[in-house]
Simulated scan of single mutants.
Amino acid sequence: MTENSGQDALTLIEDMIEKGGDIPKDLPGSLEEQEKLKRILGKIHEMHSFISRMSEGDLDAKLSFRGYIAGPLKALQSSLRHLTWQAKMIAEGDLSQRVDFMGDFSLSFNRMVANLADNRDQLISRKEELERSYAALSQANNKLNILSSITRHDILNHVMVIVNYCFLLKEVITDPKLKKQLEAIEFSGKEIQHLIEFTRSYQDLGVLEPMWQRIPVIFTNPTISGLVKDISVQLPDQCYEIFADQMLVKVMYNLVENSIRHGGGVTEIRISYVDEQSLLRIIYEDNGSGISADEKEKVFKRGYGKNTGLGLFLIREILSITDISIKETGTPGKGVRFEMTVPEKYFRRC
């Protein structure tokens, strides 16, 4: 090889290192020198490909040669593979992993894992505290429910005495004024009975943990299926689970009962979903008389309306336990449209 051809070879090697590109077809020097230069350029090209693939996360790249430069590159690849395995172990809960072969990175990595271990221990401790608190609260609620049940039973017994005596007195009293007064007392007594019986159904509100539930499954509950036996019910085809208080069945029951009681001859009930990614809307509709514009918000107030005036109020209370809101958005005269909005963390696709 001449001095000029040697310089040309060095330039080619420098250009390959700095600029990359394909190996030129025309190489300087003799055939033997050309073959040697081609091997050198090929190794540079192969090392570039090897490093590029590693930088993109591909740790399966291979080098076909060994030596002074290839050795450290393969060692780096091996270290990255081991680090990947350690990260996988950490992700699976093994926080005993430590790195001792990558200098300053090792210090940061080990500090991160140690912090994760400390946080996990704190979370476990906190979880145990919450479990103890929940157990104590659950026990207190159970005792309150027992007390409530006994008190409710005693009140009903006394009210029944009042109602029965009113009935008997009406049979023997002829004074119209006294009879009217007795009828008022009897009516109030029966209303008290009805209210107490109604509240019995809600004594477990918020006591049991919320759970994932499917509305079509809820509609197979005998208390609801019995109500809608003469009504056409359209349920959604999409499958969603709602994280709500276990009294979600009462929500659906009260909506159906409200349609039947106040809808004016409802023959059709429709439930649909509107998925807006960050929230899910559950739409309950019927083909009844609907709710007037000035009553849309009032119907959710305690004591408003006919019967006990608690049905829709309690619906809102049950749903709010898991941050689900409800409002009426129907057109008066064309049926009700109750829209329940479920936050992202309280629904999932199934």
Score class of each variant (00 low, 15 high):
Glu186Arg: 05
His194Tyr: 12
His153Glu: 10
Ile162Cys: 05
Ile162Asp: 04
Lys190Gly: 00
Arg200Gln: 10
Lys177Glu: 10
Leu205Ala: 06
Leu182Phe: 02
Val159Ser: 10
Leu168Gln: 05
Pro176Arg: 09
Leu156Ser: 08
Asn157Ile: 14
Glu171Lys: 09
Met211His: 08
Val159Gln: 04
Val217Glu: 15
Leu168Glu: 14
Ile162Trp: 13
Leu208Arg: 02
Pro176Asn: 14
Arg200Trp: 04
Ser188Asn: 04
Ile185His: 02
Val163Cys: 01
Val217Cys: 08
Val161Met: 12
Leu178Met: 02
Asp175Cys: 09
Phe187Ile: 00
Lys190Val: 02
Glu183Val: 06
Phe219Ser: 13
Gln213Gly: 07
Asp175Glu: 03
Ile215Phe: 09
Tyr165Met: 07
Pro216His: 05
Met211Arg: 06
Pro210Tyr: 09
Lys190Asn: 05
Lys180Phe: 09
Phe167Gly: 06
Ala184Arg: 11
Lys170Cys: 10
Asn221Ser: 13
Val163Ile: 05
Leu156Gln: 04
Val217Pro: 10
Lys179Pro: 01
Ile215Cys: 12
Phe219Leu: 11
Ser201Gly: 05
Phe219Ile: 00
Gly206Thr: 15
Ile218Gly: 10
Gly226His: 11
Asp175Met: 13
Lys170Ala: 03
Thr223Met: 06
Asp154Met: 08
Ile224Ala: 06
Leu169Glu: 10
Glu183Phe: 03
Leu182Arg: 06
Glu209Met: 07
Glu183Leu: 06
Ile162Pro: 01
Leu169Gln: 07
Glu191Arg: 15
Glu186Ala: 14
Leu156Asp: 01
Met160Asp: 06
Pro176Glu: 13
Lys180Val: 01
Ile185Phe: 11
Ser225Trp: 08
Lys190Leu: 01
Asp204Ile: 07
Val207Trp: 12
Thr220Tyr: 12
Val217Arg: 14
Gly189Phe: 01
Ile192Leu: 14
Ile218Phe: 10
Gln203Lys: 06
Ile185Asp: 09
Phe198Lys: 08
